[in-house]
């Protein structure tokens, strides 16, 4: 904090007013409504509401579709995290060896960050189009009949690829920064002692990259939980047979299309709890990093 400050009582509130107003009206009030709604049951015409305590939550955890959605979300998040972090680390290690050409490679690898998730989804949907797409054509030659409209596994593979494709660029940039922060002297000393590139990677690079990896893991999981909504909405719409119905899509689906407000609100509250958990983990990590 600053040692010296401006002595003024009302000016700071004036400066904070726009941000606080937006936060109260569009963040806290709706979030409060979601919490309130999650304890109520509303009849179909919105005429009568009854307080039912935790019944909406209990119903969710009895609902096989919700449990399925949790499982689908876990598979989706872990697959995207492994694929996008793995690809990004491989590319970052390769760029780290480059001297003159690192910049041009970086430019050619980072631009997908700017592509909207829905655009990424539509492009991969086109590539995997069962009748005219290039990938199903190639897969047919190899004897596999691709159809993400009927086969749940195919649909999952499709959304995982589309979501990962976009996230690689972000993870790549942070891995490159992480690699550059590792002192060259460490690796040189190990090389003089006779450690080869593979051994150096596992004993020096990977352990020193673990804070970056952990941070990116949290960011990528947050991305898969919330920002990938457009990918699902524009391509599979949660189908076929609920096989790609991730939690955030289900909130939207039940609330807006199914009009099951109580259940949707309870799902919102559960998702909020997950984001709060992830944010706390992320900030814990940042605080720790600042200390040393």
């Amino acid at each position: 904090m600053k040692r010296t400050i401006f002595p003024n009582r009302w000016l700071p509130w004036l400066l904070l007013a726009p941000q606080l107003a937006v936060t109260l009206v569009f963040f806290l009030w709706p979030a409060g409504q979601a919490v309130r709604q999650s304890f109520l049951r509303e009849d179909a015409f919105g005429l009568k509401t009854t307080f039912i305590g935790l019944e909406n939550y209990a119903a969710l955890f009895r609902d096989p579709q919700y449990l399925n959605s949790m499982q689908v979300t876990a598979v989706f998040s872990i697959s995207v995290a492994v694929l996008s972090l793995g690809m990004a680390l491989l590319l970052a290690l390769a760029v780290d060896r480059m001297l003159g050409s690192a910049r041009i490679y970086t430019t050619l690898l980072v631009w997908p960050y700017a592509v909207a998730p829905v655009v990424a989804g539509i492009m991969w949907w086109f590539i995997f189009n069962p009748t005219i797409g290039i990938m199903p054509y190639v897969l047919r030659q190899m004897g596999y009949d691709w159809n993400h409209g009927l086969n749940g596994n195919d649909a999952m593979v499709l959304v995982v690829i589309a979501a990962s494709w976009k996230q690689v660029s972000y993870n790549f940039l942070f891995f490159v920064a992480g690699l550059q922060a590792i002192p060259a002297s460490l690796r040189e000393a190990a090389a003089i002692d006779g450690a080869g590139p593979v051994k150096r990677f596992f004993t020096i690079t990977l352990p020193l990259l673990s804070p970056t990896t952990f941070f990116l893991l949290v960011v990528t999981i947050t991305y898969t939980l919330f920002d990938t909504f457009p990918v699902i909405h524009a391509t599979t719409e949660g189908g076929p047979a609920q096989s790609t119905n991730i939690l955030v899509y289900k909130v939207f689906n039940d609330g807006f299309l199914g009009l099951n407000l109580g259940s949707s609100a309870a799902q919102s509250v559960i998702l909020m709890a997950i984001v709060i958990g992830l944010t706390v983990i992320q900030f814990r990590w940042i605080e720790r990093r600042v200390e040393y």
Binding site: T23, L24, F26, A31, V248, S268, M272, I276
Partner: peptide, 23 residues
């Protein structure tokens, strides 16, 4: 005030979509 602003980090629009739409 600082904490109120901090909280917005935890409430992406996808999560509170139905009540925000209503507001």
């Amino acid at each position: 005030a600082f904490w109120l602003i901090f909280i917005t980090l935890m409430l992406p629009v996808e999560v509170r979509i139905v009540p925000t739409f209503k507001v």
